[in-house]
Design a protein around this nucleic acid. Structure first.
Lengths: 215, 215
DNA sequence: CACGGATTCATTGTATACAATATTGTTGAC
DNA sequence: GTCAACAATATTGTATACAATGAATCCGTG
């Protein structure tokens, strides 16, 4: 896919950051990284710029780039924004989705159910993402879709740990069905409200997320 | 402020793109730009990366970066997203703004009114932006605030031309007062609805925006 | 011993040189 | 005359060299 070495490195670094390989505030040493990747500093620097522009790292002139793992507060903010974006997508999708889109959504819902039945967490996670992505697309606004996808991707690591909690899967599944119904019935506000609370982190979810951070 | 030459260049290029100095699809020649700015290709390349990551340009490996002026469709999508983001900020702000924030907002509203009275378009434009930014901040979500600010900045050039149309200023002013009242009264949904339609581009606004594109 | 200042060192920022890839132009066969 | 293959050229991608800046150290003075 990518032919530019710098882009490959950017992807790899992104994965490493998601995997928590770097401490918050840690400086990304250009020379060290250059050695590790067996390239010169140039492509490393380009890769670092990507991290900076995506908000995963901060650049201080003449000092270097430092990775920024979101703390509890920022994480909550991102989840809240995610919930609102999903709600917006849902509200628009409820009036804009085509029959074909609806079929796809029903299918995705079925796939989720199947994955749960097989107790296949990873597959459920993947199918769940697809389900939501169909809604983003259903909003018929490419720009909004792209922004939402970006944040979904940014939060994926945290959502992954979330799903492991007991009971979360069944609850999630129930809400999916509600969402599907609301969209099928063409009820924008109800869709938005369900999606917002579906994605929002509150109550027990909040404590679970905080607990998963302390490792 | 910026000490890195590359960042300065990035800002300058951004301004040039906003000012419409580049055609859609035009390739940004690294060598030519390097000459114009009296620097080597290295800082130019870093500046181009910034444009790419902000969506103002597209990079095709081994071909170059090409600027992407949003067409009518993408522009509408961006405005719609902007309207929704503002609505979200407003809904949150209605329940989260402090008394101090409210004072600031009332003050900003007054400044807008003053600017209109002086028929000072540029000043109104600046004060108007401030008014909205206070609402973003009032949502008490730094992440959401940053995202919203980014899009506001991206759309500033187009909004600027919008305000020149006859009657738009007075209408905008009236809506501001409504917004202020709704937030002061702590009514989330009403705030959201007013803000959404305040920012949205529909009806006559749509035709005016389209007309302003054909130059 | 504490503190200020100069100096050294490490690291980033920029310039230049080289390599790899895509595009353009040219030649020749049909 | 058209098309394909190849050569030439232009442009991007990467490596290396050099410059500039900030942190760390050393040293002298009080």
């Amino acid at each position: 896919m990518d032919v530019r070495r710098a882009d490959q490195i950017a992807n790899t670094l992104e994965q490493l950051v998601f995997a928590g390989e770097f401490q918050d505030g840690e400086r990304l040493d250009e020379l060290k990284l250059a050695e590790q990747f067996h390239v010169s500093r140039t492509p490393i620097r380009e890769a670092l710029q990507v991290l900076v522009s995506s908000g995963m790292a901060e650049q201080i002139p003449h000092r270097g780039v430092f990775i920024r793992q979101p703390g509890p507060v920022e994480l909550m903010e991102m989840f809240e924004t995610m919930a609102e974006l999903e709600a917006v997508c849902g509200r628009l999708a409820a009036t804009r989705m085509t029959d074909h889109d609806l079929e796809q959504l029903a299918l995705a819902n079925e796939n989720c159910r199947q994955a749960i039945q097989d107790t296949d967490y990873d597959r459920y996670y993947a199918e769940n993402e697809k389900f939501h992505q169909i809604i983003y697309r259903g909003a018929a606004n490419r720009y909004l879709e792209k922004q939402t996808l970006q944040l979904q991707n940014r939060l994926s690591a945290y959502r992954k740990t979330q799903l492991r909690f007991r009971g979360r899967l069944d609850q999630s599944m129930d809400e999916h069905s509600e969402i599907l119904t609301a969209i099928t019935d063409g009820e924008p506000e109800r869709t938005a409200n369900i999606l917002r609370s579906h994605v929002a982190v509150q109550g027990e979810k909040f404590h679970q997320l905080m607990a998963s951070l302390k490792r």
